[in-house]
Design a protein around this nucleic acid. Sequence first.
DNA 1: ATAATGATTCGCT
DNA 2: GCGAATCATTATG
Length: 211
Amino acid sequence: MSLNNSSKTSEILSAHFFQRADVVSIAKELIGKVLCTEFDGVLTTGQIVETEAYNGIHDKACHAHSGRFTKRTKVMYEPGGTAYIYLCYGIHHLFNIITNNEGIPDAVLIRAIEPLEGTQTMLERRKMNQKKRNLTAGPGILSQALGIKTDQNGIQLTRENGIWIEDHGLNITSNNIISGPRVGIGYAGEDALLPYRFSLRGNPWVSPAKT
DNA sequence: ATAATGATTCGCT
DNA sequence: GCGAATCATTATG
């Protein structure tokens, strides 16, 4: 989508952005980028305001910890820039971006976005009639709002094809990024304490999950 | 083949 | 604040 953005830059993040070694840096840098989907010609976009890093085989909270390789986790070993979408609690489609090179199962979970374009479509998908925080502030509901489903598991995010990420040239300084422990992974022992959750300071669209 | 379990959300008390 | 919803994946027999 490159319509009337005359002054703003708006480029799709490439494989190079995702195929780097430090998943924690990538999770931080994704704050302020724009997550876009287009299905059946319907465009919806939102600014990423909350992410979590999952540090591959060494991270007890990561589905691929200790090199676990199953039907579900095999997509995590794809090259950076691949989508990893799985069903959680039988209800919620959680959207992750695979990072690093092929064979290394690092990933970033997108936890919340601030709606930009297509909010009317998002409201319909969420069966809501008012734009408020529970439209997109949470990993399960943002997927519902953007129409992301496990159907799209394994697709490439580096083309304007279904799901992609744009850089709108926003410069977020590190003192505007809050870090803290990840949500819902108490089973991960000491790794549950790692400060791998990042959010945009003061943004009302950050998920209400307890830290 | 069977049983347990979530990287969550929503509604009700 | 608490518990139900709901099902693919995973481990185990």
